[in-house]
Design a binder for these strands. Structure first.
Lengths: 151, 151
DNA sequence: TTTTAAATGATAACAATTATAAATAATAGA
DNA sequence: TCTATTATTTATAATTGTTATCATTTAAAA
């Protein structure tokens, strides 16, 4: 935890941004909820627990900043809200998601499944890939079992 | 064009929805702008040209309905707006997108590049894939040339 | 210190979307 | 046909997520 904060601090400094107490509190919340896909509002409420004086605007600004620095990825699953997802340590690309259409759960795939596809896109379409967003919609393991049970 | 409208009409009827004049006008706009990625507002303005009395709410409802029936796909490129993209004829899955980070252009890949990846996901993660969203962010062919020129 | 710049908090403004209610059109039953 | 019912639409109000503004605070530089 402390190491990752230290690292993020350096990333900020390298672009001459500071790790203010508010920013640190926000980053800590993100680290503590790495598996979740929090909206700005979610983050705000959680940060408020440890830094009650923080303003919503600051949370938005911080998340925006972290997005620019590729520390978090902003993602949208089709409900009206943006969600913020911490990049895995050392990850070059954004990880993938499995969204269950039955229960709404979101699972992550950290492994990069797109290397082959990306080289095809670069070669056949002449498009220089910098990053990707890949989400599968379907039925998660758990809901498949439920379906079998109830049928 | 007429054939595709006829087909969509049948799809609607099969779920006991009607193809009202407003809905038809909306579908026509989508068909005429198949290559674009229109927002609800864009669609509204275009529909208004041929059916000036239509209301914005109706456009939203129609797009929502068409989404449910998988006639269009709702997509979000990270700016605050949802965009609506007509499915290609007979396409099982949603097509892919190449978004240029320089000029903002959006190119489509109709070919399905994910069949292998999807069978891996089904096998290794036990997730039953129904559909996908794949977007690459990078530099399009045109902007790559521009960069070379200006350097 | 004094000065300057960066960051914050509160809140207003904004834009996209959804909900509401009255009016209209279509449909089914008597 | 007339009547009752339902679906759909329009106009608009309300809501929601996000961004902009501005006065204040904090930190850094001179």
């Amino acid at each position: 935890m402390e190491q990752r904060i230290e690292k993020i601090k350096k990333q900020l400094h390298s672009q001459s941004y500071k790790l203010t107490p508010q920013r640190e509190a926000t980053v800590r919340v993100l680290l503590e909820h790495e598996e979740d896909h929090l909206s700005a509002e979610d983050v705000y409420l959680l940060v408020k627990e440890k830094a009650p004086e923080i303003g919503l605007a600051t949370v938005y600004r911080t998340l925006e900043l972290l997005s620019e620095l590729k520390i978090v990825d902003k993602i949208n699953f089709g409900d009206g809200v943006s969600r913020y997802d911490l990049r895995k340590e050392g990850a070059e690309h954004f990880h993938h998601h499995l969204v269950c259409v039955e229960c709404g759960s979101v699972e992550e795939i950290v492994e990069d499944l797109l290397t082959d596809v990306e080289s095809r896109v670069e070669k056949d379409w002449g498009f220089q890939v910098k990053d990707h967003r890949l989400t599968f919609h379907g039925v998660c393991k758990k809901c498949q079992v439920e379906t079998v049970k109830s049928s």
